[in-house]
Every structure is written in structure tokens, then in C-alpha cells.
């Protein structure tokens, strides 16, 4: 069966990405994780049919794909809001008051930890260490990082996301607006950011914001 026949509902750039991913590894099976991100990008979350498609692409059974997908926290089996807000509550962030940030985000987003707001705008989760401890407490929006977030800034972030409703979320922009202490000097700004609650890595869900360098 041709690749396109397995994933006819995927956009053609994503079909092309899938094709490249299957070639990027010595064995097809290795492409299962990146393909799962694409399936999730396509369907908003990881659906049974998405896993079945990835199984067909990689020559696995759907049960094997599910075994892999369910091992990792970033493959979301349930519907995810437009903005996935991940509040780190691991030790360094905890010491710097992350629990209060989480509470503030829950209040403002109308989504309790582990749930999605009724209007589908936000999903909120607490997460383990996201590697920003020098800028604790840290928060991610669609995995784009903001360091040094206070409860007030956390609320402001939610309001901004709701009102400005950016199609692409950029880490530098959010850091500037809502962040504080950084783990290190970030250097020049990036024009790329996330278009969906999957990692905004070149092959997956990243895009450049128009009109910026």
C-alpha cells in the first residue's frame, strides 16, 4: 500500500514529513515516535485511528504502537485545548513557589490540573522538571518555555492567550511579557514557535510568525 493510502487524511506536508521520517532511520520502527507526533498534530490528540495509521506505516501492530505511545507523557490520548499549559512542580520550581503558579493558572484558565477548559481553549497540567530550574518557576505553553513566572504573571499569561489568541506561540515573546529570571542568557530571538500542543520541532508542529525576522 502506498504511504498516501495509509494516511489519506494527513496534509501533504505531513505526508511528506512522514515519508522522510521513515527514511531517516536504519529501521522503520524507529520512526514510530516522530510519526506519533505527526498523527497527534493531525488529529489534535492521539486517536485510535492515528495509532493504527502509525502501526501500518511502521509495520507494527496497533497494540505495539499503543504500548509505545502510552509510555510517554507527551502523546495525549484525550482532547487537548488550543493551548496546553504545563506548570513545572518538580523540586526546584516547587522551592520557588510553583504550586501557587499552578493554582493561579487553574483559576484563570478555568481548567483544573489535568483537564481542559469548557471552551476548549486551555488544557492545564502539572509536569515534572522541564529543565528550567535556574529560572524557576517555569511554565510551558504548547511546550514553548517561559521562565521566572509568578502567580500574577501566570494569570496574565492566560488572559493574554485568551484575548490575543495567537496562532503561533513564541517562547521569546511570552518570556518577555510574562517571564522573569532566566536559567541563562537566551541570546537572539527566534521567529519560530508552536502551532499546536505538540513539540514545535522542525519536522512537527512549528511555524514562523509572519512579519518577524
Amino acid at each position: 500500500m502506498t504511504l498516501a493510502a495509509v494516511i489519506p487524511d494527513w496534509t501533504s506536508p505531513n505526508q511528506e514529513r512522514a515519508r522522510k521520517l521513515l527514511d531517516a532511520y536504519p529501521e522503520r520502527r524507529s520512526a514510530v515516535m516522530p510519526l506519533l507526533y505527526l498523527a497527534q498534530l493531525e488529529h489534535g490528540h492521539l486517536t485510535d485511528s492515528g495509532m493504527t495509521q502509525v502501526a501500518e506505516l511502521t509495520g507494527l501492530t496497533p497494540a505495539q504502537v499503543q504500548a509505545v505511545a502510552s509510555f510517554y507523557t507527551m502523546y495525549k490520548r484525550d482532547h487537548v485545548g488550543k493551548y496546553l499549559i504545563s506548570v513545572c512542580t518538580s523540586i526546584s520550581c516547587f522551592l520557588m513557589g510553583s504550586d501557587e503558579v499552578l493554582t493561579a493558572v487553574e483559576e484563570e484558565s478555568d481548567a483544573l490540573d489535568g483537564t481542559t477548559s469548557a471552551d476548549g481553549t486551555f488544557s492545564v497540567e502539572h509536569v515534572e522538571c522541564i529543565g528550567a530550574c535556574g529560572g524557576a518557576p517555569a511554565v510551558q505553553v504548547n511546550y514553548e518555555l517561559i521562565e521566572g513566572v509568578t502567580p500574577e504573571k501566570g494569570k496574565a499569561l492566560c488572559q493574554w492567550l485568551r484575548d490575543a489568541a495567537p496562532e503561533v506561540v513564541l517562547t521569546d515573546e511570552m518570556q518577555e511579557l510574562f517571564g522573569g529570571v532566566r536559567s541563562f542568557d537566551w541570546g537572539s530571538k527566534e521567529a519560530e514557535g508552536a502551532v499546536a500542543p505538540v513539540p514545535a520541532f522542525g519536522p512537527y508542529g512549528s511555524a514562523k510568525r509572519e512579519g518577524r525576522s
Partner: peptide, 26 residues
């Protein structure tokens, strides 16, 4: 090849990382 993990600390352990890279549970 740049490979992205899926959210699992244990994949830092080198053999879990290799399993993950092979498309297995980490």
C-alpha cells in the same frame, strides 16, 4: 538524525534511550 523524546525521564538512562530510539517503550 535529531530525535525528539516523548516525555519520559527514564529515557536519559542510556539503554532506555536506545530502546526509545528504536521505537520501543523506554
Amino acid at each position: 538524525t535529531v530525535h525528539l523524546g516523548g516525555g519520559a525521564y527514564i529515557c536519559g538512562e542510556e539503554t532506555a534511550l536506545l530502546n526509545s530510539l528504536e521505537g520501543l517503550r523506554g
